Simulated assay, not measured.
Amino acid sequence: MRSKKLVNFALALTASTVGIQPAFAIEKQVKCSSGTVIVDTGTSSARFVDPNTGNVTDVYGGNQKIIDAAPCKGGIITAFSGKGIYYSPSCLAIGRADSQGTEEIYGGSQKVVSMRAIGEEVEILFEQRGNYITRNCKEAGVHITD
């Protein structure tokens, strides 16, 4: 199963590089301080798994597709197809500002290509703006390269 996920990731990365939308989702697990969020990138599906009970809860019910997600200081940063980026400290309500402390940290016109956690920071790659680092999870961050 592991090699299948690696192949799917390589196919999706290659497809996104040449501007093709893959026909499948890539499951990504994001560790939060209160549990794990399972995000199916390329879809509108995200679920929270409580480590104590094993209960699974839907944490996103919107129409936009999830582009990427990354852990940030015990919470989660999630980028959506509508170009918004949200930070949820609880990991229980992603993509909905004012819901359980969730905040929109970017609402501009640039599309997010990918995000990755680097220690306590998150690197965000925008389609036309280059790379940015968020150090506090509450803003799109400091520009580091084009």
Score class of each variant (00 low, 15 high):
5 K>M: 09
56 V>K: 15
131 N>P: 04
109 S>A: 13
110 Q>G: 08
136 N>H: 12
116 R>E: 13
79 A>H: 07
135 R>Y: 09
90 S>R: 05
91 C>P: 05
28 K>V: 14
87 Y>E: 03
69 A>L: 00
135 R>H: 15
122 V>P: 10
45 S>T: 15
118 I>L: 14
32 C>V: 10
41 T>N: 12
126 F>K: 07
53 T>L: 08
118 I>H: 10
106 Y>W: 10
22 P>E: 05
133 I>D: 01
19 G>N: 12
38 I>H: 12
143 H>C: 00
143 H>A: 10
42 G>I: 02
43 T>H: 08
5 K>C: 05
137 C>Q: 02
97 A>N: 14
10 A>K: 11
3 S>E: 13
66 I>H: 07
30 V>H: 08
133 I>T: 06
67 I>L: 10
126 F>C: 06
108 G>R: 13
36 T>V: 15
141 G>L: 02
92 L>Y: 07
128 Q>M: 09
126 F>E: 01
120 E>R: 12
109 S>P: 02
96 R>W: 02
59 V>E: 02
71 P>T: 03
113 V>I: 15
77 I>D: 01
89 P>R: 10
46 A>H: 10
106 Y>C: 07
41 T>L: 01
122 V>F: 12
75 G>F: 06
47 R>G: 01
39 V>L: 03
145 T>F: 04
25 A>R: 08
126 F>N: 06
42 G>V: 00
132 Y>M: 06
33 S>C: 01
44 S>I: 02
102 T>L: 06
74 G>A: 10
32 C>H: 04
100 Q>P: 03
102 T>M: 04
104 E>T: 11
13 L>H: 13
120 E>F: 07
16 S>I: 00
43 T>V: 04
56 V>L: 13
53 T>F: 11
71 P>Y: 00
113 V>N: 12
83 K>H: 12
85 I>C: 03
80 F>G: 05
25 A>I: 01
17 T>F: 12
30 V>S: 00
65 K>F: 11
77 I>S: 00
134 T>K: 09
115 M>V: 11
7 V>Y: 11
79 A>W: 02
34 S>Q: 15
6 L>Q: 11
52 N>P: 04
54 G>I: 05
69 A>W: 00
64 Q>W: 11
114 S>M: 08
53 T>R: 09
144 I>A: 06
72 C>H: 05
27 E>P: 11
42 G>W: 08
95 G>C: 03
55 N>F: 10
105 I>P: 09
44 S>T: 14
59 V>Y: 12
39 V>H: 03
126 F>Y: 15
33 S>V: 00
11 L>H: 03
122 V>S: 07
